[in-house]
Design a protein around this nucleic acid. Structure first.
Lengths: 396, 396
DNA sequence: GGCGACTACTATAGCGCTCAAGTAGAAGAC
DNA sequence: GTCTTCTACTTGAGCGCTATAGTAGTCGCC
C-alpha cells in the first residue's frame, strides 16, 4: 500500500542496496515533475501551496529524504560544517574545553540537520590546506576556526577563500571575518575586581602560552584593572599545562613579596598551582587566593573549590553553531542573486560582525573564605554550585 | 601553464565558484577517457602501470581530487563514519572519555581521508532512526556504536541493517556485530589483586549505573577475584557522577565494618570519594585506599594521586577507527562480487569478531604509600607518570 | 591463419538532484 | 479580442563521478 500505483512507469528499479525511493517516486505520486518536488521541499516559490502541501505529505508518507550527495553535486548546500584542530589527539583528550565546545556545536547543528566534520592536523599550513580542499571538494558549507593567534596566517587564507567562516576568539585580529568570542576583558575585570574587593593588593597573573589572542587580551586588561584599583599586578608566563603553572607558582610564593592572589589561565593550571601551595603549607584562601579563567567539574570538586569564570563551553559551541549557520544562509542568499527571503543588501555583509558571550564570575572558597563552609555532599551536586556560601555573583 | 592545452574541447566551463578541475580535465590531459582515470585513481585493474602513473602524475600536477559527492552519487563509498551519542551535550562536556575517544577516532580516520560524523540525540530510538537515515541517505559508510547496554535495542537494529557497524564494548551482548572493547575483567583483576597484594581484605566496589554492559562485567569479575583472594568484596551502586559517589562513600566509611579499599567506576567518582574521606579525616591510603577505573589528568594531579586503570581513550579511539575501516573495506569487497583483492570467503565474515584492548594498572599514592613521596613538580609532568615512586606496573 | 583468450582501454548510461529557460493557461489592461 | 503579465508549472541539461558493456589490438596455438 505504500508502493507507488505504478502501471505508468516501467519497473526501472531493482539495483537495491541502499537508497530506494527517489524524488522521481514522489513526483510520480504527486502527478508533477521532479523539479516541482524540488521546489516544494526546498521551500522555494514556484509551486502552489496546495501542491506543496500534497508533495510534502507524500514525501513524509514514503519516508523520502533527498540524497545529500545528489544535492551537493547539483549545487545545493552539503549541510556540513568543518572544524580543524591543529593539536595532537593526545592533547585534545586532556582538554575539557574542546569536548564541551564541540558538543554544543553538534547539538545545534544536528538539530538543523547539519553535521560537523572534524579533522586533526599537525600545523597551520595543513589546516589551511584542509580548508582549501574542503571547499574545493564541496565537503563543507562553512568553517569554524578555533585557537585564534595574534598574527594568524589562517585569517588571510580564509578571507581569500571568501566562503563562510567563523572565528572563535577576539575581538580583534580576525580581519574581516565574523567572530564569536568570550569577552576576556570583562572576565579579567570580574576576577580582578573580586580580588580587589576582598582587599588583595598584590595580584599575580600566571598566563599560558603567548601568541594566543585571548592571552594578550587578558594581559592588557589585567594590568589596566589592577592600576585602576591601585593593586600591584604582575604578569608571568608559564605555558599551558600543569607543570609550567606549578613551577611558576612555586617561584612566586618563594619570592620576597609573594602575591596574595593568583589568577591562572585554566583549570588545570589553577589546580596545579593550588596543589603546590597546599604542599608548601600555604593556606588557601587565607594566605593566597586562587582563581581561574575556566570553570569545570574539577574546579567545583577541588578542595577548596575554585573561584572561576564560567564560560560554559557548551553554550559557547551552541552560539558558534548558530552564527555559522547564519553565515551559510547569508552566503547562500547572496549567491542566488541578491537574497531570496529578506531584501538585505549584500554589501552590508562586509562589516566584520562580532558576537560576544558574557562571562560570569563564580565565587568559591579558593578566594572567598565565606564560601568555604559547605560540605562536599552539597557542593558536588550535579548542578553548578553558583549558590555556594550564598555569595554567588553574575556578570556586572 | 597549468591550464589544459584545450583547442580540442570547447570552453564548457565558466560556472566558477568552487570546483574547477574535474576528472575530464585529467582525462583530456592524459589522452584517455574519464573512465580510465577513475580506474587509475581508485587502484583498480584495467589500466597499464605506465598509464596509471601518468594519470596520477597529472592529477597531482593539477591538484585534482575527486568530488566526494559525485563519487557517492555514483555508488562509491562516501568516506565517512558515523557515531551517535545519546546523551545531553552538557553531560558530554564533562566527559573526559568522549573527547579523547573521538580525538583518537578522528586522527586515524582523517589520515585515511575519512571523516567522522557525530550526532547527539535524545533516545535510543532516535539513535536507531539516525542509523537508518544515515545509511538510507548514503551519508556514512559505517557506524561506531558506543555505550553498549545489557539488552541493547540498537544491536538487533544494526544487525538488521546489515551494514558495517562496530560496537564499542563487550565482550558479549553485541550479537553478531564485531566489537572493540577494553577487557574489564582483566582491569578488575589488576585492581583487586593490587589491593589484595597490599593486604586489603575488605574491598568495596562503588559502581555507576546498572544496565551498562561494562558495569555488569566488572561486578562479576570483582566478586570472582575477591573470592579467589579470600577478600570480602561488596558491591554498591551509586550512579555515575560525583554526588552519588560522594554519598555512597560517606555511607561506607560511616558503617560498622568500613572497607579498607574502595574501587570506583570513574575518575570523577573517585575524586569525589577521596574528598569525602579527606573531609572526614580519613587518611588515604593509610586508612582507606582508593582506586579508579579511569585515568585522566585529574587522577594524576590529585593529592594523593590516584591509582587507576589507564585505558588511553585516545588509543581506544584509534583502534576503533582501524577496525571500522576494515569492516567497511570488507563490505565493499563483498558487495563487488566476492572480493577484488584477496580471495576471502564472504561467509567467513559472519563470525562475530572481537578486538580487545589491554588495560594497564597505574599505581599511585592513593593505594600504595610507597608512591606517596614525589613532589608535585615532578608528578605533574606532561607525560603520564607511570614511573611515580618507582613502583609502576603494566598489565600482567 | 583463423580462433579464442587476454589486455587496455572507450563509450555510454546512469546516480538523484538542482536550476535556468521555456510554456500552457488564467487574469488583467486597453 | 489581442497583448501583456503573472502563476504554476515542465523541459532538459547538467553536476562529476562510477560501472557495465563493448571494442580494438596483441598474443598464443594447433
Amino acid at each position: 500500500m505504500s508502493t507507488p500505483s505504478t502501471s505508468s512507469s516501467p519497473a526501472r528499479r531493482g539495483s537495491g542496496r541502499g537508497q530506494r525511493v527517489t524524488i522521481a517516486d514522489i513526483a510520480a505520486r504527486a502527478g508533477v515533475t521532479s523539479a516541482a518536488v524540488s521546489l516544494a521541499v526546498n521551500g522555494r516559490p514556484g509551486v502552489s501551496d496546495a501542491t506543496r502541501a500534497r508533495i510534502l505529505e507524500i514525501a513524509r508518507e514514503l519516508h523520502w529524504e533527498p540524497s545529500p550527495s545528489a544535492r551537493a553535486l547539483a549545487g545545493a548546500p552539503v549541510l556540513s560544517v568543518g572544524m580543524v584542530l591543529a593539536r595532537p589527539a593526545e592533547v585534545l583528550g586532556n582538554e575539557a574545553f574542546f569536548g564541551a565546545f564541540s558538543a554544543g556545536l553538534q547539538e545545534v547543528l544536528s538539530s538543523r540537520d547539519y553535521s560537523l566534520q572534524m579533522k586533526i592536523v599537525e600545523s597551520a599550513e595543513a589546516e589551511i590546506d584542509t580548508y582549501r580542499r574542503w571547499f574545493a571538494q564541496r565537503r563543507v558549507d562553512g568553517i569554524v576556526m578555533v585557537d585564534l593567534q595574534l598574527e594568524d596566517p589562517r585569517i588571510p587564507a580564509l578571507e581569500e577563500l571568501g566562503r563562510p567562516a567563523l572565528v572563535i576568539g577576539g575581538p580583534g585580529h580576525h580581519g574581516t571575518l565574523p567572530s564569536v568570542y568570550v569577552d576576556d576583558a570583562l572576565a579579567t575585570r570580574l576576577l580582578v575586581e573580586h580580588l580587589a574587593d576582598l582587599g588583595h593588593t598584590r595580584i599575580a597573573r600566571v598566563a599560558g602560552t603567548r601568541g594566543y589572542h585571548h592571552t594578550a587580551q587578558r594581559d592588557e586588561s589585567f594590568l589596566a584593572v589592577c592600576a585602576e584599583r591601585g593593586a600591584t599586578g604582575t604578569l608571568h608566563e608559564a605555558g599551558f599545562g600543569a607543570l609550567g603553572a606549578a613551577r611558576c607558582v612555586a617561584e612566586l610564593v618563594a619570592g620576597e613579596q609573594p602575591p596574595t592572589a593568583i589568577i591562572l589561565d585554566s583549570d588545570e593550571m589553577a589546580l596545579a598551582g593550588a596543589h603546590v601551595l597546599q604542599e608548601s603549607g600555604v593556606d588557601i584562601p587565607g594566605q593566597v587566593a586562587i582563581a581561574s579563567y575556566e570553570d569545570s567539574p574539577l574546579a567545583r570538586m577541588h578542595r577548596p573549590p575554585l573561584t572561576a569564570i564560567g564560560r560554559s563551553a557548551v553554550e559557547y559551541g551552541r552560539r558558534a553553531a548558530h552564527r555559522i549557520l547564519e553565515l551559510i544562509e547569508e552566503d547562500r542568499g547572496a549567491h542566488r542573486g541578491g537574497g531570496a527571503a529578506d531584501g538585505r543588501d549584500a554589501a552590508e555583509d562586509a562589516r566584520p560582525e562580532l558576537r560576544a558571550i558574557e562571562p560570569e564570575l563564580i565565587i568559591r572558597a579558593s578566594s572567598d573564605p565565606r564560601a568555604a563552609t559547605d560540605p562536599l555532599l552539597l557542593a558536588v551536586d550535579g548542578d553548578p554550585d553558583r549558590t555556594v556560601g550564598g555569595s554567588s555573583a553574575t556578570q556586572g
